[in-house]
Design a protein around this nucleic acid. Structure first.
Lengths: 101, 101
DNA sequence: TGTCTATTCGTCAAAATAGGCAAATAAGGC
DNA sequence: GCCTTATTTGCCTATTTTGACGAATAGACA
């Protein structure tokens, strides 16, 4: 496998992560989960959207490997996968402060 | 304007930036430009795609405020808008190292 | 002026995404 | 077992995105 292919695959993986976060609702979810875990119906309150829509957003984030889900009783709680995601969101906040005003 | 609305607008702006970068070709472009500026035809070599396609990708990044273009002679040179974009891409590299293996 | 070359734009078809409704699934309590 | 609540999934439609081709624009230079 050539270096070019390795890099290409790398960009596909990165794009997958970026795509997962490239939506206002999913950014809201990610930033809400920086503080503490939340269940689907709590996130529904925040997003003010149909439960099925919220659930779909969550599965997008989960499939990208960004969220962990944990079922306890009736509820499914979601939390961020890792600390580097926090660093990433912080970096995003910096960028949007500088680049888009 | 409520806090909710302010945050909402913020997430729209952030999503715009994320969306602009949420494509393998555009990530490749961004990371190539971390080292030095490049013109459209040089980027075409890298991406191995139609010139019009490359141009469109560049305009997406430019419209998101991430690239600066500078015309010199026949060529249009592109470079990253700011240093915080470098930090952002570095953070992305960390995430994809941890989250998607 | 005309003729290169580099780049962008108009248009189109194929593919992916978003969001809602209703039905299905899962777990708890009676 | 049944009933209630939380969540996911199937299906549908509307919108957006991608990428290519060809036409149009812009600058350099004879």
């Amino acid at each position: 496998m050539e270096l070019y292919d390795i890099k290409r695959i790398n960009y596909e993986a990165q794009a997958k992560v970026m795509k997962a976060l490239a939506h206002p609702s999913r950014l809201l979810i990610a930033q809400a989960l920086m503080d503490h875990e939340l269940c689907v119906c709590e996130l529904r309150e925040l997003l003010q959207q149909d439960l099925s829509t919220v659930s779909r957003h969550l599965s997008v984030l989960k499939n990208a490997g960004l969220l962990i889900e944990e079922k306890r009783g009736l509820y499914v709680y979601y939390h961020l996968c890792c600390d580097s995601l926090r660093g990433f969101i912080t970096a995003l906040n910096q960028i949007t402060g500088e680049a888009t005003q």
